[in-house]
Design a protein around this nucleic acid. Structure first.
Lengths: 350, 350
DNA sequence: TTGTATGCGTTATCAA
DNA sequence: TTGATAACGCATACAA
């Protein structure tokens, strides 16, 4: 037994039946009581476990989901989504294989080819760099699901209601009396061209900001809106961009009393900038993040818009499973984001 | 072609040769020039990719490594190690499958059984909860490697020189004039009973602290040594333990001028406590972390002992591959940890 | 230099 | 109710 795992043949021989009978007790079927007990004891004795490769070959199904992630180490967001997928997958006897493309379309292509080699039953993207990469899967007949951002309209898409989430953040600040609120966030222009649906993450968040500025008659100053990337893969400090923007904001003749940074990593950089300027949060300035990843670890603990990362992953897996098994999942699902108030927001000074 | 991927038979038929010949041009062997070109064009035309399950079945090798992690979402340390493993694995045509046991030995057991079902070629642990779980693999003849912590002496073990790393942190503080240095760290008593080798992570770090206190004649006060868990899986805020310990330290009649927190998550909690007490870092108090995970994101950016997480993962994979292919890797490898000085340490006040 | 034939372990059809 | 058998796609021993 030490040398090589027991196969269904070993079980059959031990039980004095054929492999077909063993299979029947395993999968359910007409088996006599005698045969059943014989097989069951043989099963126990051998400690038989089916060989997943043989089964996969035979069933033309690998029971494996490929997860294409941007970069699991650079933003905890991805680890949390992956975790959600993983748990849902395990519960359904699926396993997952990860691949990080680091926003490099060529690498993503490589990863997709690996997925095809692995005969994954479906692929989850969070998020894809490029619609042409997705087309590779179409050719192989492998279904896929997009999370967070969408590059195509054909595949099911699990999204988050970024508009409402961002709006909650703004309303919270307004209620605290802030009227000079800065926005530090992703530039819609960077992502939008790639987006195939009505909403790009960045656009939604920015729209919520702008709408609230209008609606609540906040100070409008173009210098308060700072757009760019959330973080750079190559920067030694991912929050560098948030740091720079915040420094610039604090040097304004009339600095904002609150900053809405639409990613906890940006917010982390903002906190560092504020710390360097020896300002006190929230007494001197309030700050709200987005994601709820680093938020709870920062000083002070960050008020942030929490994304349902694990739920997104789980919903994505469910879609994938539907696709695999020939059911038609919703083409689009929107999950809510929710403001979590912690210690980084307070009444506007003055 | 859309329905079903091309097999080696398709290629053979198209090229007008046998599957054996196709295999020969794929794997290298005696093939006539004519046959070779015919096969090569057929390969291109079909876009043939070998079926990894069929190959795995035939070769009795899955080209898959199982990674057993404590919990990828709770500490970025694990994501970084996993990333290191992953990259090394990909470079060697291996894939990895993750499993998080959340410090639950039963869950770990479950995961190992899944790995056995998957016929993984080897398992990497970072870290195992329990030596009896490892024994399951022995019975299946699956080799394994331990990272960071060891529960057995048989398997190769990739460790970090925690003593020297921690010592660097202490020397750094001493050089800055600190004489009242607190230690907030893991309790050796929690982990040591499980450890099968001379060094437990916690013991090494604590020993370095104690040795330095002696050697540099620092203040010895048992109240300055705060032991416990790095973080709790269930706490809403992982840094809670660091927060509590730090609050207690700051309430001492003679609070420390520096804190060595032996995990960035603990340090994050310490930063929050210090922030709440309206003390300024490093002017009022210095703090050093360990790991270099959150460090760069905290305010102020944390001076910390950097662990070679990706290297540990890569070295672990190499060991696993050696084991799989019948080579004998070193039973133990020690990687260095290195102090990274950032903004949270400065001259002792007063 | 090339092709035939077999087995890896599982599932499932079909005949008994 | 059961067993013999074929097939999934690949790799390879052996024969030609």
């Amino acid at each position: 037994m030490a040398a090589g795992n027991p196969t269904i043949h070993d079980v059959a021989k031990l039980a004095g039946v054929s492999t077909a009978t063993v299979n029947r007790v395993l999968k359910g079927g007409y088996v006599s009581a005698d045969a059943r007990t014989a097989v069951e004891t043989a099963l126990k004795e051998t400690g038989y476990r089916p060989n997943s490769m043989a089964r996969g070959l035979r069933m033309r199904r690998s029971y494996t989901i490929g997860q294409m992630l941007t970069e699991i180490t650079v933003n905890p967001f991805f680890a949390n989504v992956a975790q959600g997928v993983e748990n849902a997958a395990r519960a359904n006897n699926y396993r997952t294989v990860l691949f990080n493309h680091s926003n490099d379309s060529k690498r993503e292509r490589l990863g997709i080819e690996r997925f095809i080699d692995d005969h994954v039953d479906a692929v989850l993207f969070c998020t894809s760099t490029d619609a042409t990469n997705l087309a590779l899967l179409d050719r192989s007949g492998i279904p896929y699901v997009e999370l967070e951002r969408s590059r195509t309209t054909a595949a099911p898409f699990i999204r988050v209601d970024n508009y409402t989430g961002a709006r909650q953040a703004m309303v919270h600040l307004v209620e605290l009396g802030h009227r000079r609120v800065a926005f530090v966030g992703g530039d819609p222009a960077i992502q939008l061209p790639n987006s195939r649906r009505g909403y790009a993450v960045e656009e939604e968040r920015l729209n919520a900001y702008r709408d609230c500025v209008q609606e609540f008659d906040l100070l409008t100053d173009p210098r308060l809106v700072r757009l760019g990337k959330y973080y750079s893969m190559s920067d030694t400090f991912p929050g560098a961009s948030g740091y720079r923007h915040t420094r610039a904001l604090l040097e304004l003749d009339q600095p904002p009393t609150a900053i809405f940074a639409t990613c906890d990593i940006l917010a982390a950089g903002a906190l560092q900038a504020i710390y360097d300027c020896r300002l006190r949060i929230p007494e001197d300035i309030s700050i709200v993040g987005f994601d709820d990843t680093l938020a709870v670890c920062l000083a002070p603990a960050l008020t942030t818009v929490s994304q349902p990362m694990a739920r997104m992953g789980a919903a994505g897996f469910q879609c994938a499973l539907d696709l695999i098994e020939g059911r038609a999942p919703l083409n689009e699902q929107t999950l809510p984001a929710e403001l979590v108030v912690r210690a980084s927001t307070g009444r506007a000074p003055g």
